[in-house]
Amino acid sequence: LVRYRTISKIPQITLNFVDLKGDPFLASPTSDREIIAPKIKERTHNVTEKVTQVLSLGADVLPEYKLQAPRIHRWTILHYSPFKAVWDWLILLLVIYTAVFTPYSAAFLLKETEEGPPATECGYACQPLAVVDLIVDIMFIVDILINFRTTYVNANEEVVSHPGRIAVHYFKGWFLIDMVAAIPFDLLIFGSGSEELIGLLKTARLLRLVRVARKLDRYSEYGAAVLFLLMCTFALIAHWLACIWYAIGNMEQPHMDSRIGWLHNLGDQIGKPYNSSGLGGPSIKDKYVTALYFTFSSLTSVGFGNVSPNTNSEKIFSICVMLIGSLMYASIFGNVSAIIQRLYSGTARYHTQMLRVREFIRFHQIPNPLRQRLEEYFQHAWSYTNGIDMNAVLKGFPECLQADICLHLNRSLLQHCKPFRGATKGCLRALAMKFKTTHAPPGDTLVHAGDLLTALYFISRGSIEILRGDVVVAILGKNDIFGEPLNLYARPGKSNGDVRALTYCDLHKIHR
């Protein structure tokens, strides 16, 4: 019993810090008490220290592992850092350059016999395009090294910054494609005289377009951006097909006994025919423009016929181009109408809503002055909100995010209106959640004399007048207030005048 009563005193000691020596009952000389009392004092002292730490809000209350900052290894790049964003855009520009100039170089340097010394005699450094290609190869190699040090988000939505895990993730992902696209074939085969082989191998750079397509997928929600990307894709495919079309004609031209190829026909049409040795002929500019003209006309199913396939190889390629053109029509131009419709969806919704308003007016036989006010209010409210119901949009977000959005939407009023000066951010967040926005066209009466005042109004834009009878008592403008002081009276009061809008007004109100 003594032991039980001794232990039962522990909660009292913990909360009230009572010393055991003052209790005459606990001072009985028993061996059990002498053993338990020192333990009680020690526990009391420890609990006292913990309570003191909690009340003082000291940093040592938290466990040590929670006080440590997340460790980022040296030379690790955050995937959302500004440097990584700028670097990704730079790589994107280099990939676009590669997609345009690599097929052009591979096709127009394929057994090209233009006048001038061969590239091997001039030297590697004197070729501007080769120098640019070398810079692109170096940048792609540097990009691989950067990807080995860039964080990523795993399946659990955690940012991984450990170098080993980053390397394994990159090896399992895009490393092989990036490595093949970054191989400097110019340096590996330079001086061997195989410019045709170098041009063909350099087309491996186009593998990076797969990554670019995935990154550009984030802009699919913007109709104008999608339309622009589709047109660029169409032009890029036409450019690639033009390079292939020229390569076919250029390879067949020296081996044909009869002059029936499209390059021969082009030379005869523009007065620059090929001679018996295969030299001469149109310039590279004429060849490229004509090839691009043929691919565009074939892809769009126009086909004027002034550039036509004559050999079997050219006919087979033309059939493939027609098939590609039909697929592009289905996948690209078939979506253009939907994209344009999405661009004008706001206008369509406006006309639909206006039609419903006019049908309501016609069905209920609203008189002319009231009908005009109804239409003007709808037009003004639509121009202010673009038909978007803010309350319906915010309803799907958590309250903390709703408060931040409301604070942002009402920031101008909260910053410049005098009653809100000096208020804490928590108070402003709470008030912003209570605001209701209303609009009024010129001549609209917001409050009639004798109406119950259940709200306090803040003028965000425009001006109003307060009338008693036919006498203008006051004219209020931006950041002015009218209405009933909230919670100042037990019952809502009545208006002693009319409140009429002089201009288009936007008002925020808080109800009782």
Rank of each mutant, 00 (worst) to 15 (best):
A330Y: 04
I91R: 01
I135F: 07
Y65S: 08
N386R: 12
L327A: 03
R349C: 08
L92S: 04
K395A: 12
K111F: 01
L145S: 01
A235I: 11
E314Y: 01
T203W: 04
T120C: 01
P419R: 03
S258A: 09
T424A: 10
L200G: 04
R211D: 08
I237C: 09
Q253L: 14
V132L: 09
V86E: 01
A338Y: 09
N368P: 11
A106M: 08
P103N: 01
T76L: 13
L409M: 08
E359L: 02
S220T: 04
I237H: 01
F296H: 01
P441E: 06
A106V: 09
M179N: 01
G305F: 01
P82I: 10
M179R: 01
G278C: 01
L78T: 05
P367D: 10
P273F: 01
N265Q: 14
C417V: 11
A167Q: 01
G199M: 08
E359K: 04
C243H: 01
A130P: 01
E121V: 15
D257V: 05
R71H: 08
E64L: 14
R259L: 01
L78D: 05
L129E: 05
E115Y: 03
G191C: 04
E376Q: 11
R71G: 07
G191F: 04
A235Q: 01
V160N: 01
Y80K: 03
F333Y: 03
I388C: 13
L428I: 06
V159E: 04
S326C: 05
S345A: 09
A213K: 10
C427D: 03
L370E: 01
L176D: 01
Q353C: 03
F435W: 05
G346Y: 06
I270S: 01
L229W: 08
M179T: 13
Q341I: 04
C126Y: 01
I248F: 01
I332T: 03
F101V: 14
R429M: 01
G271F: 01
L209Y: 01
V321I: 15
Y80G: 07
M433K: 09
T385S: 03
I405P: 01
I166H: 01
A238R: 01
G261V: 01
E314M: 01
R211M: 03
F228I: 10
